[in-house]
């Protein structure tokens, strides 16, 4: 009985911290230098949290660029992105046969004149039951298309801004866990009210061993490198947990693309054989 309750009591210790937002450690988080600083909008601030204990410790405040994390929540652009992500890999296999593909029908069913019946040349004509289908679906029909480059970039900034505004974006110092048990991670997510599904984002695709082993068995808690970050996945997961180095990389990549000078080379019409 006591053994059942004791691990749950671990969470109750952090109850008082729900109502305080003070710095709980003295670790120094080095401040971020924002590139292309915004003239009008102020930089946004976010806490850096820890992952090495169930109790949340706030390690420091960092600043986020307002163009990336405080953009307008353009749900129209987000919808375009989600639609594109679902469609570009979708191939329709619905198939119907044309008149000449249906078996038989080579002979004229009855003479053209003299019978008082309607004229017909084949029993597989589209007018006939069991005949071919005119203008039916043909397989395979690819639905691939390319979304314009800056619609994709704006989709990312809109989704990141929405996640940040809704308090579903968390920054951690690194993804090091003390154990590789999945119960630890589940308990941590539960005590921090991160909701049912969590996506951890790091700057590299080789993650620490413990978190890889822990998330391996939990289907709704997953890992993703920065190069895989996309609108659909960000919306799919309740909470987005990004490491500090990943924040640096995401922000620099998006800002570079929003400010680069040679955009004419890739904003033209998409060609299938382009690199």
């Amino acid at each position: 009985m006591l053994a059942n309750i004791l691990p749950k009591l671990r969470n109750t210790t952090s109850l008082c911290r729900y109502f305080s937002s003070a710095l709980t450690t003295n670790e120094n988080i080095e401040p971020r230098h924002l590139q292309y600083p915004s003239v009008y909008q102020k930089p946004r601030q976010i806490w850096v949290e820890n992952l090495d204990s169930i109790d949340e410790r706030k390690l420091g405040l960092i600043e986020l660029h307002p163009t990336v994390f405080a953009a307008n929540p353009r749900i129209d652009i987000i919808h375009q992105n989600v639609r594109w992500q679902q469609l570009y890999r979708y191939v329709s296999y619905a198939h119907t046969k044309l008149k000449f593909e249906v078996r038989g029908g080579g002979r004229k069913p009855w003479p053209q004149k003299g019978l008082g019946k309607a004229r017909h040349s084949s029993i597989r004509s589209p007018l006939w039951k069991g005949g071919g289908i005119a203008h039916g679906p043909r397989s395979p029909t690819p639905h691939f298309y390319m979304l314009p480059f800056y619609t994709r970039i704006n989709g990312l900034t809109s989704t990141l801004s929405i996640k940040f505004a809704q308090d579903d974006l968390h920054v951690v110092d690194n993804l090091e866990l003390p154990t590789d048990e999945k119960s630890f991670l589940e308990e941590l997510v539960k005590s921090r009210n991160w909701g049912p599904s969590v996506l951890f984002v790091d700057d590299t695709d080789i993650m620490p061993r413990n978190i890889t082993a822990a998330t391996d068995e939990i289907k709704h808690i997953n890992l993703m490198p920065v190069y895989g970050l996309n609108v659909y996945s960000m919306l799919k997961y309740e909470t987005l947990v990004i490491t500090r180095s990943a924040i640096d990389l995401i922000e620099s990549k998006i800002l570079e693309n929003l400010n680069r000078n040679d955009d004419k080379t890739f904003t033209g019409k998409y060609k299938v054989n382009q690199v």
Partner: peptide
Amino acid sequence: MQSRPYYIERTR
């Protein structure tokens, strides 16, 4: 610019 009621951002 920060003290103005509206702002028009310059392009890149």
